[in-house]
Each structure stands twice: as C-alpha cells, then as structure tokens.
Amino acid sequence: MAYLEIRNLKKQFGNTRVLHGIDFSMEKGEVVAVIGSSGGGKTTFLRCLNFLEMANEGTIDFADGFRFDAAKTYKSKEIREMRLKMGLVFQSFNLFPQYTALENVYIPLFLRSKERIKASLPFGKERRAAIKAAGDGDMQRAEALLQEVGLADKMGNYPCQLSGGQQQRVAIARALAQDPAVLCFDEPTSALDPELTGEVLRVISELKNKGRTMLVVTHEMEFARNVADRVIFFADGLIEEEGTPEQIFCSPKSPKTASFLKH
C-alpha cells in the first residue's frame, strides 16, 4: 500500500473536462516533480488533492487508512480534516499581510490546537491552561520552522517587508507547521525574480534531505532533474509519461514529452 494513492481522479468545470482520470501514487519520503505545458491541469490536480476543488470521480487513499471517495459527500468538518493531511504552497505565496512572518506560521497552527483542546476538555481552568500550554508549544514550533527555512532574523517582519523569496519561505514554513503527509508546491518559484528562485529551491532540497514527501509542480527543469526522485509529465489532463529524471529527460518515450522538453 502506497503512502498516497490516487485512482482514476477526474475533474471537470461545467462541460470542460480538465482531469481525465489520473492514477498516481507516492511513497513516503519521495519527491515527485510534475512538469507539463500550461493548461494541462497541473494546478487543478494539486487543488483536488488539497480539496480546494472537489474531484468529480476517483479516490484518494492516505497512509493513515483514510479514503476520500468523490462519490461520497463530506461534511465541512471532514473536508477540513482531509485538507490538513495535505499542505499546499501557492505560486503567489498568499501570506496574510496583516500578520508578521511568525504570526503567519503560528496563528493557523494555534487555531487547530485550540479546536482540538476545546473538543476534548470542558470549559474551565483546565482547558484554559491547556490552551496556554499549546500556544507556547506552537510558538516554539513556529520559530523553529522559520529558523529551518533560514528566516530566524525576519520573524517580526510583515510580508510587505520581505522579498518574494523570503515570503515564499515563510509560506513553506506555514504549510509545514501542521506536518502534512504530503507537501504540494504549485510553481513555487514562478512569481519570483530569477535571482530569488535559488533560495526557495534550496529550502525544498533541504526538506527532501529531512525526509519530507513532496509533490512539486515546476518549470525549473534543472530542479526537476537534480532533486526529484521521479518526474511525471502532465499533458491534457492525463499523466502522459512518468519515470526517473534520467528516463524523462534523456530518453522520453512519448513524442509529446520529447516535444515539450525541446522548448
């Protein structure tokens, strides 16, 4: 049983079919790069995995035995729980501008701790103490994560006071905070100036060395070649080809892959 297993995932918007039945699985600790020309459905794929879009058909099996089945309906609380199994880093960072880097990481984390405590303890002194302790723990975790992405000295800065690369690193720390099983990236460096892409890609490689399972949609072919364990090529809502970086980049089997890589 794979760490994450997706079967026959389909998505359409109105009459536009975008994903035509994706079969895909990942092992723990694996880093998979997703490449493909624009409009191929890569973003939609990640959004379905994070339940920002609801797939029309198919199943997603998580390592903890949980199964999402598009044929079933879920309550909003269940959807929120499913979302926490996955993390998503956006192309445009989407940090909360009114909060500091540290608050951006801490607040979402603490909200969930608070919810868990409220569900398990009755109103009263004990609960308040538990919330306070969780808050302290979450704060330490947020600080440690920002340190991990190399922003120990920028914790008190607001997003508008950070470069794009720094903002994206905060977004990575924020997504990591709740320890998702799989961290997804949607073109994490596409909105960055070329000289800033390096620092973000470096953070992702470091996360790989620490054993993170990651699914990275990217146009950085160098990165896909050097960092990914496996590359999948997306075309017209299907996985056209997948393999090791050598297979994909040196001897692609599909003519579509070959033609994409020539450009």
């Binding site: 729980e81 956006f90 009114q98 709740q178």
Partner: peptide, 25 residues
C-alpha cells in the same frame, strides 16, 4: 481569492477565515 484559499488549506473554518484573516484587511 488566494487569502481564502490559503486559510482553507490550513484547515481554518469559514468563521475563523473571516475573523482572523479577512476582516482586518
């Protein structure tokens, strides 16, 4: 829209999203 989506993928409820993320903006 990205503000809502960022809050969503972090597991926030609609209420939390409005009061902690959207309102002050």
């Amino acid at each position: 829209k990205g503000q809502y989506e960022a809050a969503q993928v972090l597991g926030m409820t609609a209420r939390e999203t409005f009061f902690t993320v959207i309102m002050m903006q």
